[in-house]
Design a protein around this nucleic acid. Structure first.
Length: 254
DNA sequence: ATGGCCCGTATGACGGGA
C-alpha cells in the first residue's frame, strides 16, 4: 500500500498534473492540500474516472484539502473537532484499516505575526486531538504540508533561515511534540540522498539551484511505521510546465 | 541585493503563499 501527500497549489490549475502523476504513480491514497475550490467545484468525475474515490472539504480562494483513495473511504471527519476554524485545513478518514489524517498546517507568514500565533494555537489543538485519535486508531498517518522544516538538513541554508518562519524554535518544538505522541518521520526512517526538499520558491530560480525546504511530511504511528519499507520525495512534477511549488512525498507500507 | 513568482479575486492591484 502506498500513501502520499501533495500540496497542489490550486487543483483547478493542477488537475492535469494530478492525473498525469497518478497515471505514473498509482498510489493507494493521496492527500491533497491547497485545492482552493469550493465543494461544488471539486472535480469529482475526473478523479473517479482515474480510479479514485475522494473525500474533500474546501472554500473559496484559500486552503482546501482532499483524500483520494483506490479503496473505500470510511468515517470521514472534516476539521479538528476541538478547534473552531473557518479555514478548511483538515480531513481525516479510515482506509484499509489505516486512519489517514490530511493536514494543511498554517503558513504563519512571519514569526510573531497574528498568523504565527494562529499557527501555534492550531498546532496545539492538532496535538490534543491527535493524542485522542491515536488511542482510537493505533495505525495512524499524518500526511500533509506542515509548513515546518524540522532539522538543519531540511533547509538549503540553515543559517539564512535561522529563526525565520518555517524554521523557528516554536514551530520545530510543535512538530517535535507531534513526534512525541509516538510518531516517526517516514522519510528519515531510511537513508536518503543529501539536500532533499519538498518545496522551492517560484522566484530566484530556486528549484534549479535546489534552494528548497522539506516541509511536506508523512508521520506514522509506531505501529504503522513497522509496516513502512520506503519513503521518497518525487521531484519530477516540479520540472513540469506550470508546476506546483510543492512536490509529492510517498510512503510504502507492507 | 529585504525583490524577483504564482494563484485567485467582481482583477488591471492586492493579499497570501513560503
Amino acid at each position: 500500500m502506498k500513501i502520499a501527500t501533495w500540496n497542489v497549489n490550486s487543483l483547478k490549475v493542477r488537475l492535469p498534473h494530478l492525473l498525469q502523476w497518478l497515471e505514473a504513480n498509482p498510489v493507494d491514497v493521496l492527500c491533497l492540500q491547497e485545492t482552493k475550490l469550493t465543494d461544488d467545484k471539486f472535480p469529482v468525475a475526473e478523479i473517479n474516472s482515474a480510479g479514485y474515490q475522494v473525500a474533500y472539504t474546501g472554500q473559496k480562494t484559500y486552503n482546501g484539502v482532499a483524500i483520494l483513495s483506490k479503496h473505500p473511504i470510511r468515517d470521514v471527519v472534516k476539521n479538528n473537532p476541538r478547534f473552531e476554524d473557518a479555514q478548511q485545513r483538515i480531513i481525516a478518514a479510515t482506509i484499509e484499516g489505516v486512519r489517514v489524517v490530511c493536514a494543511y498546517i498554517p503558513n504563519g507568514q512571519a514569526v510573531d505575526s497574528d498568523k504565527y500565533v494562529y499557527k501555534l494555537a492550531w498546532l496545539k489543538a492538532l496535538h490534543e486531538w491527535l493524542a485522542a485519535e491515536m488511542r482510537e486508531h493505533p495505525q495512524l498517518a499524518l500526511l500533509g504540508d506542515y509548513n515546518i522544516a524540522p532539522e538543519d538538513r531540511d533547509v538549503h541554508d540553515p543559517a539564512e533561515w535561522e529563526g525565520k518562519i518555517h524554521f523557528s524554535d516554536k514551530e520545530k518544538a510543535a512538530m517535535a511534540a507531534l513526534v512525541d505522541l509516538g510518531m516517526v518521520d517516514a522519510f528519515r526512517m531510511f537513508e536518503q540522498p543529501e539536500k532533499q526538499y519538498s518545496w522551492w520558491d517560484y522566484r530566484m530560480m530556486a528549484f534549479r539551484r535546489n534552494r528548497g525546504l522539506r516541509i511536506d511530511h508523512i508521520l506514522l504511528s509506531t505501529e504503522l511505521a513497522r509496516r513502512c519499507t520506503a519513503c521518497i520525495i518525487d521531484r519530477e512534477p516540479r520540472k513540469w510546465e506550470q508546476p506546483s511549488d510543492h512536490t509529492p512525498v510517498v510512503a510504502t507500507l507492507d
